[in-house]
Structures are given as C-alpha cells and as structure tokens.
C-alpha cells in the first residue's frame, strides 16, 4: 500500500517536471503581443475637443523614457512635430502603432518632422513597454503626473484617465496644422499622416 502511494507520488513529480520542461520549451519566449491586455471594444471617442487647426500648440515639458525631459519648444523653428498620443501601454492597437512608426523614420525625416510619443503611463511602465518593442528612435514621454495634464490641455483626456488615440501635426512655428482624434479601437493609417506632412511643404 505504502509502495503504491510512493509510486503515485513519483508519477505526480514526473508529471510536474515534464510540464516545467514543456513550459520552458514553448512558453519561454514572452513576446510583446503575449503581454498585451485585451481591453475589448471601447467608446470610440470620449473627450471634448479644446483645440482646432490654426491654434498655437500648448507648450509642455515631460519626462522621457531616456531619463531626460523633452519640451515642445525645443523643436521651434527647426522641426515640424508630430505628436502621437496613445491611450495606454500594454493595450491592443497601441502596442502596434509605435512599432509601425519605428520603421517609418525615413518618412518623418523626409518631411523634417520629429515624432513624439505620449501616454499617461508612468516612466517605468513606458520603459518596460518600449523596451519590449526593441527600443524606439523617437522619444516616448510620460504624461503621468499631474495625471494626463498634457492630454487634457490638448482636449483628449478620456473619462477613465487614458488619452484618446490622437495625432497632432505642429509646424515649425508651433501652430497646429492637423488633428486626428481617432476611433480608439482603430489604428490611423500612415497614409493620412503622410498626406498631412506633405501639406506642410505647400
């Protein structure tokens, strides 16, 4: 009886060991996608606009993942600026939008534009998220505290504390030339942005 119990015990240990091996073999390579939290379908837009094309872009200075701070004013007279607000780290759509921009640098360069990414997450969260993307060529800024203050200034802070999925194109004089407060559930096509950057040349 005792011996049978021992055999069952060994079988159980064997099973656990095998499962550990399996987990190491198949689940060891956690990828960005596997860590994304599915938020489901959300209200497409949940904010009231405060800005319009032709307005002066509100100034801001925010901490970046790099440990430095980035101010909108530092690009005045030298670069057009594209601000990509995304709702939150580790959520669907957002986790693809910036990796897409990450391979489109030549397009931004072509239009003398600096891309800036902003979320309402804190710096460590943004760091982990962008690190798993393999790093980004553009600054990722944290609008965490005062929470969503810049998103609020830009009229895109949602009622749950996240921001809209929004794009702002700002010319070298600091004037807003394009606003796309996009359906939060969908990714804006790159084509729209390129068309608006092309407009800056005219």
């Amino acid at each position: 009886m005792l011996q049978r119990k021992r055999i069952y015990g060994e079988l159980a240990i064997g099973a656990i060991a095998a499962m550990c091996l399996v987990t190491m073999a198949y689940g060891g390579s956690a990828t960005l996608k596997e860590n994304v939290y599915d938020v489901g379908a959300l209200k497409p837009i949940d904010s009231v606009p405060k800005l319009q094309v032709g307005d002066k872009a509100p100034e801001f200075t925010l901490p970046a993942v790099s440990g430095k701070t980035v101010a909108l004013a530092q690009y005045r007279d030298t670069k057009n600026v594209v601000i990509s607000f995304v709702p939150a780290a580790w959520t669907p759509v957002c986790s693809e939008q910036w990796p897409g921009y990450n391979i489109a640098k030549p397009i931004f360069d072509q239009y003398d534009a600096q891309l800036i990414g902003i979320t309402v997450d804190n710096v460590p969260t943004l760091y982990a998220w962008t690190h798993q993307m393999g790093g980004l060529w553009f600054p990722a800024l944290s609008d965490f505290w005062p929470h969503g203050a810049v998103a609020d200034q830009y009229g895109i802070l949602r009622s749950d504390g996240t921001s809209e999925r929004a794009l702002f194109v700002i010319d070298k004089q600091g004037i807003i030339r394009y606003i796309d407060v996009h359906d939060i559930n969908k990714r804006p096509p790159l084509d729209d942005l390129v068309r608006e950057l092309e407009e800056l040349k005219k």
Partner: peptide, 17 residues
Amino acid sequence: KRVLLFVALAVCLVALN
C-alpha cells in the same frame, strides 16, 4: 526502475504536448 519510470513519464508527456 523508479528513475526509469520517472524519465519515461516525463518524455511521454513532453512528446504528447
């Protein structure tokens, strides 16, 4: 025998997975 049983079981489960 027990070690062999243990190894055999582990291998079978990995293969099954």
